[in-house]
């Protein structure tokens, strides 16, 4: 269990048709249970890093290990299964399927992953009970659970999305600007809730945001510009900043 949850080494990636690398990371290790704030303005290669971590894009060179697994070596379907088995995702907004009731949105990972299902059932007698427990922890009243997601406020939707990312205890939670649609006070509350739940579930959290004011909540902070060599001025290299 002392293998890092995320382990990048000399990672290169460029989108097809682009001249230079979009990502060029010498090294990034995130240990189990760690809560990392990764600062990255738009255009710093943030989405690309998320795509690589999620296994929907593959590195051109270098090492990318999640939980000790070289995901790039897995067949595509196994990568999709690995993603849902071990990673919970939180996006900027529009995190939920609008026509699906809140509770069903939260249960989506359990529908696609037997592992998440089993781990959820280890926490509560039924899947719905586990979803309810998380929603309750995230301050969502039971009256909302049967509502289609589109009827909820953005703040409520983001909290439900956090419940979805956490259900079935994935080892890694990746949050991509989850607070950008919230006002300052709600951002604060949301991050506190998220950190608390991740800590309770023992999940590693990578929180990506352009808003450096949020960094103070996290024990470890990095900037993507700091680790991504592709974004730097050429300095004799042929690289050019990607998007």
């Amino acid at each position: 269990m002392n293998a890092p949850v995320v382990d990048l080494e000399d990672l290169h990636f460029r989108w097809p048709g682009q001249a230079g690398d979009c990502l060029d990371i010498a090294s990034l290790r995130v240990a189990a249970g760690e809560h990392l704030f990764l600062a990255g303005p738009s255009g710093s290669g943030k989405s690309t890093l998320l795509a690589l971590l999620g296994g929907v894009a593959l590195p051109d060179a270098g090492r990318l290990r999640i939980l000790g697994r070289e995901t790039a070596r897995l067949p595509a379907a196994a990568r999709d299964a690995f993603r849902v088995d071990h990673i919970g995702f939180l996006f900027q907004q529009f995190n939920l399927i609008p026509w699906l009731p809140l509770l069903d949105n939260v249960l989506l990972p359990c529908r696609f992953s037997a592992r998440r299902r089993q781990r959820a059932l280890a926490q509560a007698p039924t899947l719905a009970a586990e979803a309810a427990r998380l929603l309750d922890h995230l301050d969502l009243a039971p009256a909302l659970w049967r509502q289609p997601a589109a009827r909820l406020s953005v703040g409520q939707q983001q909290r439900a999305a956090a419940a979805r990312a956490l259900i079935g205890r994935p080892e890694l939670v990746i949050a991509d600007e989850p607070t950008s649609a919230l006002d300052a006070e709600r951002q604060q509350r949301f991050i506190d809730l998220l950190l608390g739940e991740c800590a309770a579930a023992g999940a590693t959290l990578i929180f990506v945001s352009h808003d450096t004011r949020l960094a103070a909540h996290f024990p470890r902070q990095l900037t993507l510009d700091g680790i991504n060599r592709a974004n730097r001025e050429p300095e004799g290299r042929d690289g050019r900043a990607g998007t």
Partner: peptide, 15 residues
């Protein structure tokens, strides 16, 4: 497209 991306994030294969 967002709906499909969400489904992808929770493990839906392109298939």
């Amino acid at each position: 497209r967002r709906e499909l991306a969400i489904l992808r994030s929770v493990g839906a294969r392109p298939r």
